[in-house]
């Protein structure tokens, strides 16, 4: 009987301990445990993506010699075209540097791109995040901008040693200053969150009242946003309506549906932060 009582008390004590830890532990202790467990699970998180890379490797390895020769020939053609572009690019770069030196202008090169593969996606009612397979060891820090082929992907919100979490542009927590392409007046963009079945969207506010709703009008990042360079595509305006104050308009933005299928992204590391 006494043993049974001891067991009951012990079981309740374990549960109470967890509850106590949840409510009363200071933030730094919670952050310590969160960080420790996050580093512990980081290699596990990257396993599916690495297995996918391995699968691709083996499927490519099973190609016949003839297919490889054909692919090599196509690549050689592409390479020669790119070589010309590289030469053109380097001569233009030299020209820009010379002009900057002559006119004593600050350097245009503000960001270095760190290409990273997507390890996992968490797109649900609570979060809109992707995990990239690069972290603080590669110079990535919180708040850095992340872009992909279709424009803005999001912003780095959490960094581990080998991985980092990116808050997607469609997330409710993503808010940024931007402008309509061809109109430099700043407006505010915010994601709408995890709306149903892969339809990504956002909302814009503080749009000047004289801006008309035109098909194909797009919003791009503004240099006011800080971590983002100017002119990177966010999405297409789908509707605009006048606010009750009749000074500004607000509306919705349609984002690229490929946002959730991104396999690779580039983290923009400010040149000034490299080596810090």
């Amino acid at each position: 009987m006494a043993f049974k009582n001891f067991k009951s008390v012990r079981n309740i004590a374990i549960f109470a301990l967890a509850l106590f830890a949840a409510v009363l532990l200071p933030d730094w202790v919670v952050d310590f445990f969160r960080g420790a467990f996050a580093e512990f699970r980081a290699p596990l998180e990257a396993i599916p993506s690495q297995l996918n890379d391995l699968r691709k490797f083996w499927s490519l390895k099973s190609n016949t010699k003839l297919e490889l020769i054909e692919a090599g020939r196509d690549l050689a053609r592409l390479n020669s075209a790119y070589e010309l572009k590289v030469m053109e690019n380097s001569s233009l770069k030299l020209q820009v540097e010379r002009l900057e030196e002559l006119l004593s202008l600050p350097s245009q090169e503000r960001y270095k791109m760190e290409i990273a593969r997507v390890a996992s996606r968490d797109i649900n009612a609570w979060w809109q995040q992707v995990t990239l397979r690069k972290g603080s060891l590669h110079g990535i820090k919180e708040g850095y901008a992340v872009i992909y082929g279709g424009g803005v992907l999001g912003r780095v919100c959490e960094v581990g040693l080998y991985t980092c979490k990116v808050e997607l542009v469609s997330s409710r927590d993503f808010r940024i200053a931007c402008h309509i392409k061809g109109d430099d007046r700043p407006i505010i963009y915010q994601g709408l969150g995890g709306v149903s079945l892969r339809s990504f969207g956002g909302e814009i506010r503080d749009v000047p009242a004289d801006v008309e709703e035109t098909s194909g009008a797009v919003i791009v990042t503004s240099s006011l946003a800080g971590s983002f360079p100017d002119g990177i595509l966010i999405g297409e305006i789908s509707s605009l309506k006048l606010d009750s104050d009749e000074i500004f308009k607000s509306g919705t933005v349609r984002l690229n549906p490929e946002l959730s299928a991104v396999k690779e992204a580039a983290v923009l590391i400010p040149v000034g932060d490299i080596g810090k």
Binding site: K7, R10, N11, I14, F15, A18, L19, A21, A22, V23, L25, V30, F33, R34, G35, A36, F37, A38, F40, R41, W126, W127, T131, E158, K165
Partner: peptide
């Protein structure tokens, strides 16, 4: 109960370590 608590708390902490929520609350 004790072994189960260890497994459950460890799994909960690991699952929610990256989330914007207190992992101890989820463990509870």
């Amino acid at each position: 109960y004790v072994s189960m608590s260890i497994v459950v708390v460890f799994s909960a902490m690991a699952s929610f370590s990256n989330a914007d929520v207190n992992p101890f609350l989820i463990a509870a």
